[in-house]
Amino acid sequence: MPAPPLLPELTAQVRAAAHVRTSACPCGITTTLADRPDATVVRHADTVAKAHAPDMTRADLAPRLTVAAAIPDVLLPPLSPTPVALHGRLVTFWPYGTPVDPDTPDAAPWEAAATLLARLHRTPPPPGTPTMRGPAKAAHAVARLRDAAPHPAVPPVLRAWDTLPAWARAEAPMPHTGTLCHGDLHLGQLVRHPAPEGPWLLIDVDDLGVGVPAWDLARPAAWYACGLLPPGEWARFLAAYRAAGGPAVPVDGDPWPALDVPARALTVQTAARAVAKAVAAGRPLDEVEQSVVDACDRMATVPPQLTQEHAK
């Protein structure tokens, strides 16, 4: 028997939750913000409901929601720290925040993102905080690529993956697990709350946990290394993180010994996802996708910079 449709019932639940929060709801349409296998997100008025990935358990999610509720000046707090079940998926409810506008890249809040990350990394993790899921997500992307149909881009991506230490491939524990990390930092993980012009906050706690803080800087670092992020924007991000006391990199000097392994892992993850999607769609790689595959090809010939901590 096929599973009952999730979206209509999630829509009904977010409407009900919005109406409980305010009597002034204009009761317009409910907007689907995302509908992917790993997350379905809908909005009605000032309320957002998220159906998490099917493999997300209460034991995984509850402590992450508790962390978000405890630091509302860094993470958008949930409306309730207790998820509800819907068709085998856990659902959480959140206030709506204004996202980053992808059409105005010059206004991207790199300083705000870096400052929030530094504050998150300096927050003592509560007892019972799970492990950050960044390396596990990268490993999952590579596993999907191995299962995809043959493609010329697959071998260089896998060669680059094989140069990484075991912890970055989720084959061994992370070498540093005392820092609270976001686990999946990119500009889509920031919103202004209260909408539309409140302060920036981080969202999406699914990968939150203790781990290597450099992982949270790895995606912009990888974009910079691949030529996808201008040097000026990378410099702004890095300077703001350092100014806010972020512990992932030294306060001055070369940051790359700390960033190289995570940045390589995020480059491989990005390339693996891009190639798998292109193969599934039967289309060639676009220019950006090819650039990260080319970066993997280069990476496979140059060993990563390994700090003593990251060499395992």
Rank of each mutant, 00 (worst) to 15 (best):
L117F: 12
L117S: 13
A118E: 05
R119P: 00
H121R: 01
H121A: 02
H121Y: 04
R122F: 03
P124Q: 00
P125I: 03
P125K: 01
P125S: 01
P127I: 08
P127T: 14
G128E: 14
P130K: 02
T131Q: 13
T131L: 14
M132K: 01
P135H: 04
A136F: 07
A136N: 05
A138S: 13
A139S: 09
A139Q: 07
A139P: 06
A139M: 05
A141R: 13
A141Q: 10
V142F: 05
V142M: 10
A143E: 14
A143R: 13
R144A: 15
L145R: 10
L145D: 08
R146N: 14
R146W: 14
R146K: 15
D147A: 15
D147C: 14
A148S: 15
A148N: 05
A149W: 11
A149T: 07
A149D: 15
P150Q: 09
P150F: 12
P152W: 12
A153I: 01
A153C: 01
V154A: 13
V154H: 13
P155C: 13
P156S: 06
V157A: 09
L158S: 11
L158I: 13
R159M: 08
R159P: 00
A160W: 06
D162A: 15
D162S: 15
D162Q: 14
T163A: 06
L164P: 05
P165A: 07
P165C: 08
A166M: 10
A166N: 08
A166D: 14
W167L: 01
A168C: 01
A170Q: 00
E171Y: 10
P173L: 00
P173A: 02
P175S: 02
H176A: 10
G178L: 02
T179M: 02
T179C: 04
L180C: 03
L180N: 01
C181A: 12
C181L: 07
C181E: 05
C181M: 11
G183T: 02
D184W: 03
L185A: 15
H186R: 10
H186Y: 15
L187S: 12
L187D: 08
G188P: 09
L190M: 14
V191I: 12
V191K: 08
R192D: 09
R192M: 07
H193N: 11
H193Y: 15
P194E: 04
A195E: 07
P196V: 11
P196S: 10
E197H: 15
E197R: 14
E197A: 15
G198S: 06
G198L: 01
L202I: 07
I203K: 02
D204I: 00
V205D: 07
G209H: 03
V210M: 00
G211D: 02
G211E: 02
